[in-house]
Amino acid sequence: MQMSTNEQDYGQDPLAVRDTNAYKAEYVHSFVELWDQLIDWDGRAESEGDFFIRTLKEHGAKKVLDVATGTGFHSVRLLRAGFDVTSADGSPNMLAKAFENARKRDHLLRTAQADWRWLNRDIHDYYDAVICLGNSFTHLHDENDRRKALAEFYATLRHDGILILDQRNYDALLDHKVEPSHDYYYCGDNVRATPEHVDDSLARFRYEFPGEQVFHLNMFPLRKRYVQRLLREVGFQRVTTYGDFQQTYRDEEPDFFIHVAEKRYVDGGEEE
Rank of each mutant, 00 (worst) to 15 (best):
L173Q: 14
R232W: 00
S75R: 00
L174Y: 06
G243F: 07
G188Q: 08
G161T: 10
T71N: 02
F31I: 11
V214R: 11
Y23L: 10
E7C: 07
Y249H: 10
E7T: 14
V130I: 13
N218P: 04
H182V: 04
L79S: 05
F137G: 03
D175L: 13
I131S: 01
P195W: 10
S4F: 09
N101L: 03
V85R: 00
I258N: 04
I131V: 15
S136K: 06
H176L: 13
T194G: 00
Y23S: 09
F209W: 04
F137R: 02
G72R: 03
Q8G: 09
L157W: 03
R192I: 10
H107L: 10
V28Q: 09
D171Y: 05
V32Y: 06
H182F: 08
V67W: 04
N120Y: 04
N101K: 02
E271G: 12
E58A: 14
G60A: 12
A68G: 10
M1W: 10
N218D: 14
R225P: 00
I123V: 15
G49R: 08
P92T: 07
G188P: 04
E270M: 12
Y184D: 02
D145T: 07
T138E: 15
G72S: 07
H216A: 05
S47K: 15
G243M: 07
G211D: 08
Y226E: 15
D142A: 12
Q228K: 07
A172F: 09
A102E: 08
I39Q: 05
